[in-house]
Design a protein around this nucleic acid. Structure first.
Lengths: 194, 194
DNA sequence: GACAGAAACGAACGGTCGTGCTTTTTTAGG
DNA sequence: CCTAAAAAAGCACGACCGTTCGTTTCTGTC
């Protein structure tokens, strides 16, 4: 095993950073706070990333890798079309409540935070979001092929709308602390299927 | 007229602060930057509010007042029920693109930013959002009374879903810079009406 | 077990943050 | 006009920010 010490610490840092950023945002991430939480020195931690911006990007990458592992990949075990789509949605909901996402989905937080702050971090986030919407649309199109949905249904519009369902869930759950948020989300998902 | 000088400056500060906060968030608001933009001294500006937290709350109040003036009040001129609801939606869209909201709707930005940061600012925002959702639900119920919608339709679910439509619009428009965002939002709104 | 390189540390930097003070300037009413 | 109050400015503070640098401690390899 070539797993070096540095890689281990780096991984631990990113793990913690994702959780922290889900609460305070990528901009609210602070090297000092992060180092203190992990009982590292500021400079020791900083050395692993060459700038705060590089850290932020790696946090995004790390979260994206976890997302694929927790949501996208396992859903492939389901039969294509509607069942897989439904599974994607359920896992997406789980993801938004999972333990590393103590502050709600990191991507949701980052999306509104960075939408007016040009730079590499925003660029990477935008691309990741496009890819995710692409996954949803592709899944939907397979559902059309399978005959689950009408042939003239708009897959991109579906992906857009489904994201809206998740955002509404996030808003109701995290800001309003609405206990019905999850039921509302499922209801909206059901109503979305043609 | 008892309009004093202080009130004028205060108003100008809040006007600018709303625009700034829509881009960088309420937490990203900085007294130094704000003062520089308005060609005021930091301490001179600070004197009008006794703390940054007080400033943030007043920014919320100011934005809320503008929102009522630009969206809620004029929509009352429309016939109750579906027409008024449709008008509310259109004005809401306008609001999200209006000039003081250079960075997209301030409330959308604040909602994801503050959802994990307890305190008076979060409390006030939560209440404002509840009130707005209440306005939507009430409008919808009047639509039921008018016979525009089925009597067993769920007004709260409708308000929740409509918010999701706006959030999806915001995401597509501001992060993805999708030119079809507006069309998508209108399409989703249409599909939402029972 | 020695030795090169990686990893972590401690201290310091220039900068900006929010927030107090004191002083000067401006405003508005008799 | 004068004057008391309001508004704005000036200055300084302690805290924390990201970042750099030189030093020390630890790791993995021969």
């Amino acid at each position: 095993m070539t797993t070096t010490k540095g890689a281990v610490t780096r991984h631990a840092v990113l793990e913690r950073a994702v959780a922290l950023a889900s609460r305070v945002g990528l901009g609210g991430l602070t090297i000092g706070t992060l180092a203190e939480d992990l009982e590292l020195s500021k400079s020791g931690l900083f050395g692993h990333f060459r700038s705060k911006e590089a850290l932020q990007i790696q946090v995004l990458e790390h979260a994206a890798a976890r997302f694929v592992e927790a949501v996208v990949r396992p859903a492939l075990a389901q039969p294509r079309g509607e069942p897989r789509l439904r599974n994607l949605f359920e896992r997406w909901l789980d993801w938004a409540r999972s333990s590393p996402m103590l502050g709600g989905c990191l991507f949701v937080a980052a999306a509104t935070e960075l939408d007016d702050q040009p730079g590499p971090v925003r660029d990477r986030l935008e691309q990741l979001q496009r890819e995710w919407l692409g996954v949803i649309a592709t899944s939907f199109r397979k559902g059309i092929d399978e005959g689950h949905f009408p042939v003239d249904a708009d897959a991109d519009q579906f992906a857009h709308d489904l994201y809206g369902v998740m955002l509404a869930y996030h808003h109701a759950h995290r800001l309003l602390r609405d206990p019905k948020a999850e039921a509302r989300a499922r209801h909206a998902f059901q109503a979305l299927l043609p």
